Computed example of a mutant assay.
Amino acid sequence: MYTKKDQPTPSRRQFLGASAALVSGALLGTNKLFGAPALIRNIAKPNSLINGVQIGVITYSFREMPDQSAEATLQYVLDSGISAIELMGGPAETFAGAPKNTVDMRTIFPLMRKRRENQPLTEDETKTLTEADAQMKAYRDEMTKWRISAPMNKFEQVRKMYKQAGVTIYGFKPDAFGMQASDADIDYGMRAAKAVGANQVTVEHPANDAHTLKLGKMAEKHGLRVGYHGHEQQTPTFWDTALAQSPGNAMNFDLGHYVAAGQPDPLALIRQKHTRIASMHIKDRQLPANGKGNLPWGKGDTPLLQVLTLMREQKYNFPATVELEYQIPAGSNSVAEVKKCVDFCRNALS
């Protein structure tokens, strides 16, 4: 692992000052959504392509923020100084007129993480998750019906809005590719991904060979790649079957989870499989011996510095995606902490 460095000191956060107008302009709602981006058209666009390494962010990083609309999410990305994103389904689908999800995901996400990591849940937490699971199933059924006639032009408008502000959407992660998804769901998700300008869709690895084969073949037809995401179940051979099945299958490698799983030499894995990595999530987690914690960047055991340096030196062109999962300090928020992560990357790549 790398020698610890002090966490880079973030520069003063630059607010664009157009957030309220941005959202209200869109909500006033002409069919020309571009009233919102017009407010930022003449403001300096972000650039997180740093010495050849594209630093991006997954919009899950902003899950603590109260407004999850496409317009507000764009503002969070801009305020963070980021020019490329892996966009989860919620903001774009809501913009396109999808049914409203009644589940408060800000409450459910932490409980889902505890369940995934086999942490003990209280009786109340278990009840909350069970109720949310039932609501999510009903919501997915409603979404499946909506997707049959979902307007692709609305997704194209999202792409144009983000592009006009200087932000590229490289990945799209709607809830349309899991084991419960029909072929129609999958086709919709890939058409929507193309419409927003993504070159990849991302999904949790289903641990089902028949499903990864289906997804890979459908991705080939759409000219996309499916990036399979893993948590602490990642190993050096975790993706091998999917990668062998189709050139449409790829890795959405999570560097931090790989370290927390105690796996050996992530740099060797990246060197070996870099052509099949569609994108990589970066965070700073501890080794199992140190507790597996998610820490502010530069405080954990993840070789962020070495990996970013490797990407710069070898000119790897997959994006490194900031995924904010450490505890947000009192008085701060997701945007400020994501900006610190970007500053860490900027210092590491300078």
Rank of each mutant, 00 (worst) to 15 (best):
L310D: 09
Q54R: 10
T309Y: 04
R312L: 02
L324R: 00
A261T: 07
G248F: 02
N118T: 14
T275S: 14
G256D: 08
E232D: 09
E86F: 02
F155R: 01
G35K: 09
Y258K: 01
A72C: 04
Y170M: 05
P8T: 11
L121C: 12
P151Q: 04
M152Y: 12
I328D: 06
L267I: 14
G262R: 01
G262A: 04
A207M: 10
D175F: 10
E220D: 15
S69M: 04
M311I: 09
K173Y: 11
V342P: 00
A138S: 13
L243V: 06
V342Y: 13
Q245L: 08
M112I: 04
T302D: 08
M1D: 15
N252F: 11
K339S: 11
C341I: 13
S350W: 03
E125H: 07
K163G: 14
K221N: 09
P37Y: 05
A165Y: 08
T9Y: 13
I328M: 08
V201L: 11
R225Q: 15
V167Y: 08
Y139A: 00
V77A: 05
D141F: 01
K100S: 03
N317L: 05
T94G: 10
V342H: 09
A20V: 09
T168S: 10
E156G: 14
L224D: 07
Q286D: 15
M280P: 02
A38R: 04
P236V: 10
F172H: 09
R346C: 01
M161A: 11
P91N: 05
A98I: 02
L49S: 14
M179F: 02
L78F: 06
S61F: 04
H229K: 15
K292H: 05
G216I: 00
L224K: 00
L87P: 02
P120S: 14
R312V: 00
P236N: 13
L27C: 04
R116W: 04
A278S: 15
V307Y: 06
T128F: 00
E313N: 13
L22G: 00
N249T: 10
D209W: 03
L305D: 11
E220T: 06
E125G: 09
L22K: 00
L129P: 11
A38T: 09
A278V: 08
S350I: 02
P303S: 08
E142N: 14
A181R: 06
N252D: 14
R159H: 13
F177R: 03
F238E: 07
I55Y: 07
A207E: 15
R346F: 01
D343P: 04
P8K: 14
V196C: 03
R271M: 06
N333Q: 07
Q180W: 06
T309N: 15
L304R: 01
G35E: 00
R312Y: 06
D6Y: 06
S48Q: 11
G291D: 10
T126D: 11
Y139F: 10
G81W: 01
G166P: 06
R12H: 10
P37H: 03
P99G: 01
M218A: 12
T235P: 03
T30G: 11
Q54S: 13
H281D: 14
A330D: 13
T275D: 15
T59I: 06
P99M: 03
E117G: 07
I282G: 00
D185V: 08
D265L: 08
N42E: 14
P264E: 11
Y139T: 01
